[in-house]
């Protein structure tokens, strides 16, 4: 656990996360034939929210003010446990993939409580939907993780990346492809993307993630938005570096290898963002009671992935 790697990864996490959601917004706009906001617009929004005053509802308790910090810090901590550029992640000793899933659940727990606190119907609606959908998505996510963990005989993310990195033909191993598909659907559900939830919607009765943030303002809102974009970056990195660890710098890598690894990582990130944008642009939002069917389809994919681990062993 060396300090410079930890600080560097923390800075990378903080700066890259808003950029990724900004790029996704910009590409979505491009695909609608409009120029759209600059990719770095998200930074301006965050900076302005930080400077603004806050209006807090009279019904809220201390949980309302505590939740943004838990969401923000738990997202950052998961980011430090996931290998982004350098193979053993800075805090890989402190927790493997199970700890990452647990910390994301901790962030979601307090986000939902923050939604319920101001006693408004929309917050309650958002919390209820968020907890329901994440409960249905959890088994699919866990089974996909198990598939990779079993082949790597470890729940440590760096080990998992090493195991898929070592045997090259394993990249196209059907178990990995199916697990990747399942995790991609879960990624769409967790980050509130189009088939499940519409991030840019204006209709508070259809929101899932945004409904919980309706009461937050000023720096609380900035931490919540930043935490959500860091969580999105963490899930995308989990997807990329576990299933396609090409170019990931090994333990004793030099500066050059780290540079190549950074470039490979950014290229993969943009490719995954492009995939998310295409899905968002060509699909309508599912009816709320159809989303569990989508997530149970992801669960079936993960089970097939598990079966195929020992069929093609």
């Amino acid at each position: 656990m060396n300090l410079p790697a930890l600080v560097l990864q923390l800075l990378l996490l903080l700066l890259l996360a808003p950029l990724v959601s900004g790029v996704i917004k910009n590409w979505k706009a491009k695909l609608q034939n409009r120029r759209g906001p600059r990719p770095w617009q998200v930074y301006f929004d965050l900076a302005k929210f930080l400077r603004k005053d806050m209006v807090i509802s009279e019904h809220t308790s201390w949980v309302f003010g505590f939740a943004p910090y838990v969401v923000f810090l738990s997202a950052l901590l998961t980011g430090l446990m996931v290998p982004m550029v350098h193979l053993p992640a800075p805090l890989s000793l402190f927790g493997g993939v199970l700890a990452v899933v647990g910390l994301l659940a901790l962030g979601r727990f307090f986000l939902a409580l923050g939604g319920l606190d101001p006693a408004s119907a929309f917050g309650g609606m958002g919390s209820s939907r968020e907890m329901t959908l994440s409960a249905i998505a959890e088994p699919a996510l866990m089974l996909a993780i198990f598939t990779v963990a079993i082949t790597a005989k470890s729940t440590d993310l760096s080990q998992m990346a090493l195991s898929t990195q070592s045997a090259t033909w394993k990249l196209l191993n059907p178990a990995h492809v199916l697990a990747f598909a399942a995790m991609f659907v879960v990624l769409l559900a967790e980050t509130g993307r189009i088939p499940v939830d519409n991030p840019a919607t204006h209709l508070e009765l259809t929101m899932i993630h945004e409904a919980m943030l309706l009461e937050y303002s000023g720096r609380h809102l900035a931490f919540m938005e930043w935490g959500a974009s860091v969580k999105q970056l963490v899930l995308m990195t989990l997807l990329l570096n576990v299933f396609f660890p090409i170019g990931l710098a090994g333990p004793g890598a030099g500066a050059a290898a780290l540079g190549i690894s950074l470039l490979a990582y950014l290229a993969k990130l943009l490719a995954l963002s492009a995939a998310v944008v295409v899905v968002e642009t060509t699909n309508a939002k599912l009816r709320l009671f159809r989303v569990p069917d989508l997530l149970s389809a992801a669960f079936v994919l993960a089970t097939l992935a598990l079966l195929s681990t020992f069929l093609f062993h």
Binding site: A29, R34, R35, G36, P37, R38, Q41, F44, D45, V55, T201, H202, E204, M207, E210, L213, L214, E215, Y216, S217, L221
Partner: peptide, 12 residues
């Protein structure tokens, strides 16, 4: 949106 101007849902 290209100017960073946006209509938001909540006055907060």
């Amino acid at each position: 949106g290209r100017f960073g101007i946006q209509f938001v849902a909540s006055p907060r």
